[in-house]
Design a binder for these strands. Structure first.
Lengths: 129, 129
DNA sequence: ACTTGACTTGGATCGCGCTCGAAGGGCGAC
DNA sequence: GTCGCCCTTCGAGCGCGATCCAAGTCAAGT
C-alpha cells in the first residue's frame, strides 16, 4: 500500500518510531492512541502525521517510565477534549518531577559506579605498573 | 536476635537497604551475593557490614537497569577472586556507558515534556487571562 | 489460477523481577 | 506450656509489557 500521500502503513510507522507493528496494535487496543487510526478499504490501518507525532510523544512518556495505564489516562483526557487541558498539564507536571528525580538518582548511581571503576584503576597501577 | 554486634538480621538489612526480606532471600538464591551469609545456631542469616555494602552496590546496579543475570555474572567474578578484576572493570565500564546514555536520553525526554507543559501554559494565558 | 506478502483479529504465551503463601522451627514473654 | 513473632525453605502466583501464534482477508505479480 505504501505511503498513499498523507497516510502511513503500520510497517512505515513501525520503521519511523522503532516500535514493532505488534506493539503498535497492542498500544491501540490498550487505549493509548489519541484516536483509533481509520482503516482503508482493505481493512488496514492508515496513520497520519498527527498520529506519528502522538506516537513519538507517547514513546517518550513510556520511555521515561510512565505506565501503560497512566498513558491511557492521559490519552483519554486528550480524547475528552479541551476542557481537560488543566488535568493533562497536571499529569505532565507530576511526571516531570518524577523524571527529574530519576535523572538525579541515576547521576548519583553513575558516580558510585565511576568510583568503583577508579578503584579498579588504582589496583592496576599498584600491581601492573 | 537484634544486632549481635557485627552481624545483622535479615529484617535489619531490609530496613537499611529498602529491599524486602523476600527480595534479599531471592537475590541470594539467584546468586547475587558476594558470598552466602552464614547462618546462626537458629538457622537465621547473619549479615556483616561488608554484606551490607555489597547489597547497596548491587542495588545501584539494579537501579541503573543491570539485569539480575548480569549482576549474577559480576558477583560470580567477585567470588572467583582477584584474577577477574579486569573483566569486572570492563563490565562496569560498559554499564557506565549505558547509564550515561540513559541519562542523556532522559534529559532529552524531559525537555520534550517541558515543551508540552509550556504549550499548556500558553493555552492558559490565551484563554484564561 | 496460484503464490507471495503485508495486513487483519483474537487470544495464548513469555520473560522478568519479584511477591506471597504454606508449613514449620526456635525463642522470649506471660 | 502456649502465645506471638521472626525466622527458615520451597514453590506457586502475580503484574507488567510486550511478543508471538493461528486463521483469515485482500492485492499484486507471474
Amino acid at each position: 500500500m505504501i505511503g498513499m500521500s498523507q497516510s502511513l502503513t503500520i510497517a512505515e510507522v513501525a520503521a519511523e518510531t522503532g516500535l514493532s507493528a505488534h506493539a503498535l496494535r497492542y498500544y491501540e487496543k490498550a487505549g493509548l492512541m489519541r484516536e483509533t487510526p481509520p482503516r482503508g478499504g482493505n481493512g488496514h490501518r492508515r496513520y497520519t502525521e498527527r498520529d506519528l507525532a502522538w506516537i513519538r510523544f507517547l514513546t517518550r512518556l513510556r520511555g521515561t517510565g510512565m505506565s501503560i495505564a497512566d498513558v491511557r489516562r492521559y490519552a483519554e483526557l486528550v480524547r475528552a477534549g479541551e476542557s481537560t487541558a488543566a488535568e493533562r498539564k497536571q499529569i505532565l507536571l507530576t511526571h516531570r518531577e518524577e523524571v527529574a528525580k530519576r535523572i538525579s538518582q541515576l547521576k548519583d548511581d553513575l558516580a558510585a559506579i565511576d568510583y568503583k571503576i577508579e578503584i579498579y584503576e588504582k589496583l592496576e597501577e599498584k600491581y601492573q605498573l
